[in-house]
Design a protein around this nucleic acid. Structure first.
Lengths: 357, 357
DNA sequence: AGGGTTATGGCAACCGGTTGACATGGTCTT
DNA sequence: AAGACCATGTCAACCGGTTGCCATAACCCT
């Protein structure tokens, strides 16, 4: 039964003890408030606002008007409780301060908000333990997750994938979806370039031991170097930061190579900084290259020759893939992202003929 | 009354039709499962796990053991529904790809996860409308928000602050908490440095019109320039990116100043890039300075002289302040963050005596 | 006009915790 | 030994939506 209270004055009337249902402590209106104002049942409000067509146009209009007046918003938690869908996905990163992730974040954020999803960002600070803790903390409140540059063991990743949908970036694990760059394409272009310049002996400055991508790059380099008859040594593992690259100079010089291929741009930049301080001429005495083409790589002098990854696209694709799966659509096949060699000033022909042992 | 069923075999017994309460569709255990396994009421489980001391040590141990075995996690949504607390805060940024925000993100993330809070990141892409939309979308699911470099109108910010606690970074609005750098300290150091080198006429390359911080820097520069008898012109507004800085070179040269103070490092770097392409000698013909000391500022050549902001600390303080308020503690007074001048290679004495009109 | 079909909206149970009120049993006090 | 008090654990209502099921009303057909 409908009461005859002047509903326009609930505000004034509500100044009494509790004004039950009229105006809640939190200030936010609920479907019950809307239902009362529109003179229908709460369930009808729920349907009118989220099941288009289920309710007659006239009633729906009345409900929408009431919702509008009350500035009603669905409570995402209440909705999630029953449906199990939080409309939220997580992006887990090894290191937020590494410029490689900017593109990934931006791409992911765009793709997520385009579908009305909210993005949560968690950082593992290059530690598998921290990453595991972060993941288990946010797992219950997300619908799925994107693991970029994960430092987790493959088994652990599979465990997570059992609980919630997972998409990996720059990492491959059996039975888990992944967005990967075309490593061999990039490495081939890089080796062709170095070969053409006349380099015969290279060093690879590897990344963290747990980095899947560092391993892949090494494998491709090894294969390519062999087939071209080039010498190749691995120097590492290195911390994937400017400091890490800086610390590697001595070993690079000791290796007597004419070119150094760094696992990523940060290491390459650090190496160049250290070289400059030690009066080692880059690129003439030593050519240096990186991977990723991060912000800063074209700023540094000499500007860095590097293999560009489509990071923003990777973030976007990862989220789209995840969301497609969540929506029940079968995600389109994930072809590898193209890797393009960007030739700048940090590579040149070696000054003297390579010393062949 | 306690039943005598062999509780150790619920798993086997649970293989029947639905195993109601035994194992849920989602795979996650609930307090009901834990309660059953531990032989207590659900409410006791809730208290044991979240109200330390409320339950006897013996019972609590039993419950914790059961929870452990079932790999129980609280459902954050269910909890939030009743308590109204989501244990989540939002960080809203104008532009994720701007390196200034790295430090803020990292500091905020650290402070948040230290207290068990989850951080949501939203990007406004330098647009007030996008920012407003993002904020209203995430508002119901967060306990509070940090607005860094907000492009929102002051009134709108106040509106938001009424609904949820808000802490601002690099922006001041009446009655809203804010973490601010000590602008006058930084500007004073900068002007002292330029004055000492012999510069008599400066240009300020301002940022976006809606940037509160750009305005503040300008005011402080104006005041300091006046008291030192230096000439000062404003050139702008400029888009706060490298491109934006690049585009400003012509006007800077036309202004015939010996030093350019850019709103931020990105603009400064862009200006230097354009100068290098036009064979304008930095720092001898033109000194350039920035603000923030972002990643890349010491990489660029010449390395940029800039006013460093404690960005990571800003992010951390903002979150701590917010969390203190949420916990009912009165947040400690927010003293301004110190701003330190970092002198590098982009500033020098002007080549010829300053032209005084 | 009668019987059948469909569109519409209400009822109530449920999602998974939280918490005030209260029953119970044990300990302490005098 | 009796009463007061405290510690412990249970009951049940509630947070705000969602959804299966059903009652009702409206419309259709012959």
């Amino acid at each position: 039964m409908q009461s005859d209270e002047p509903e326009d004055e609930v505000g004034a009337a509500g100044t009494s003890v509790d004004a039950s249902r009229g105006q809640r402590r939190n200030g936010a209106a609920t479907i019950y408030d809307v239902a009362e104002r529109a003179g229908v049942a709460p369930s009808t409000v729920s349907r009118a606002l989220s099941k288009p067509g289920r309710i007659s146009a006239a009633t729906e209009a009345k409900i929408r008007a009431a919702a509008e007046e009350l500035n009603f918003r669905f409570n995402p938690m209440a909705r999630a409780l029953h449906t199990g869908r939080t409309q939220t996905i997580a992006l887990v990163l090894a290191d937020i301060t590494n410029p490689v992730v900017f593109g990934i974040i931006r791409g992911a954020e765009k793709a997520a908000s385009a579908e009305g999803y909210t993005l949560i960002i968690a950082e593992s600070q290059e530690s598998g333990d921290v990453e595991a803790a972060a993941v288990s903390r946010i797992l219950p409140s997300v619908d799925g997750l994107v693991l970029a540059t994960s430092r987790l063991a493959s088994d652990r990743i599979r465990d997570i994938a059992v609980e919630k949908p997972v998409v990996l970036i720059n990492r491959a694990v059996d039975d888990v979806a992944a967005i990967l760059p075309n490593v061999s394409q990039g490495v081939t272009a890089l080796l062709d370039h170095l070969d053409e310049l006349g380099h015969r002996s290279l060093a690879y400055l590897s990344g963290p031991q747990v980095s899947w991508m560092s391993e892949r790059r090494w494998e491709n380099l090894l294969e390519g170097a062999e087939s071209r008859g080039m010498g190749l040594v691995e120097i590492g593992p290195n911390v994937p930061t400017i400091e890490g690259g800086r610390a590697a100079l001595r070993r690079v010089l000791a290796a007597r190579v004419t070119a150094a291929v760094a696992f990523n741009d940060l290491i390459a930049i650090g190496l160049m900084k250290a070289a400059a301080e030690s009066d080692v001429d880059v690129p003439n005495r030593l050519s240096v290259t990186g991977f990723d083409d991060i912000f800063g790589s074209e700023l540094v002098v000499p500007a860095l020759t590097t293999v560009r990854s489509e990071l923003e696209l990777a973030g976007q694709r990862a989220v789209e893939h995840l969301l497609a799966g969540l929506a029940g659509r079968t995600p389109e096949a994930t072809d590898a992202l193209s890797a393009e060699l960007v030739i700048r000033m940090s590579t040149a022909a070696p000054a003297e003929p390579a010393v062949v042992g």
